[in-house]
Design a protein around this nucleic acid. Sequence first.
DNA 1: GTCTATAGAAGGATAGAC
DNA 2: GTCTATCCTTCTATAGAC
Lengths: 209, 209
Amino acid sequence: MTPTDKHTESKIFDAATEIFEEKGLAAARMQDIADRAKINKALLHYYFRSKEKLFMAVFDKLADKVFKKFSGIFEEDMPFEEKIRYFFKEHISFLQKNPRLPMFILAEISRNPRLLEKFLSKINISNIKTKISSDVSANLPEEAIPHLMVSIVSLSVFPIAAKPILKGILEQAGIEYNQFIKERMQVAPDFIISALKQYNVESKNNEKQ
Amino acid sequence: MTPTDKHTESKIFDAATEIFEEKGLAAARMQDIADRAKINKALLHYYFRSKEKLFMAVFDKLADKVFKKFSGIFEEDMPFEEKIRYFFKEHISFLQKNPRLPMFILAEISRNPRLLEKFLSKINISNIKTKISSDVSANLPEEAIPHLMVSIVSLSVFPIAAKPILKGILEQAGIEYNQFIKERMQVAPDFIISALKQYNVESKNNEKQ
DNA sequence: GTCTATAGAAGGATAGAC
DNA sequence: GTCTATCCTTCTATAGAC
């Protein structure tokens, strides 16, 4: 099955995904989507009723995709340090294949808080929290877990979400963006693991006093 | 001088700033801006010619504001560890006062790459790089500086830029967002400094071998 | 400088032929 | 199911009175 004989509905859906990811809901034009899908504008309404409904279908699918990736990783059964490395490898290579995805989700939610509900209904945060809790060295206190998680996500998502700016700044400094991101698959987990090791050292020193 | 007898031009500018930050260029309406400024829609065009020009004026001002804050901090004369702590304190409290600013800049640039040039022209990256280079312990190799910088910025910007999502997730876990961010002013620099200390320890061990 | 009224263009949505 | 033609609303922008 080649891309050209896919059914119309999925051609529309794929085109809509590209346009919405690129421009966001407000700037996207039904005409743009029809053009990219190589069909007539009226067909968009035939299949999806309205721009709003088409957008919601796309957003829902993409939010799902993100969450499957995010939460799946912590289910893997491996030692914590290895899991952190696995997370960054998996996650950054996923985001590299979908570089517009994080900014799309973040920007659309920040402009339409009603989308947040749709998003939150997909996660069960305490599941993940418990999982990590049992993983991490007993030295890390309960309250530190959410901070660790936010740090991990910040370090993995931000450099991809801010790609255009970061790419621009790095190039001013003579650094190639794609190479830099590849390095981060190693650098970022090193960074986190170092911080946790040092934390353990300091905890032991405090116990001795 | 009370807010009500400010000159019309600056009333419009302030209203436009709020609306554009909140909705982005594409979703913002000239009527919204006129309403918020409590003047007539025609006056917007009298003072700023077009929506595009009004937007550019706002974007330029806000990009300036961000960069003054970002680059200024590393000019301070203090030991590196203290500087990191100072950066997070200053930066997070700045972003808390302007919570929509980072997402506005990131989202608008990612949707209109022409804005990037305007933004980049404001920075001199090698200045900052040299400054940090001379700050950090001699143990950190040259190539690691950009990674350190990106990690610092990721950890400070992301939790604010992703506020709506993060707030939603934290509340599901029974954690209050503002309190959490306040804690990060301490947690994030601790995290970075720990990682650097551990890095130094490992470098010394390698030398011994 | 500020307002009302309106022109003019763009975009979402539908009717109706095939 | 798919197309052309067109309606109708919304929005930017301007004309012109005060």
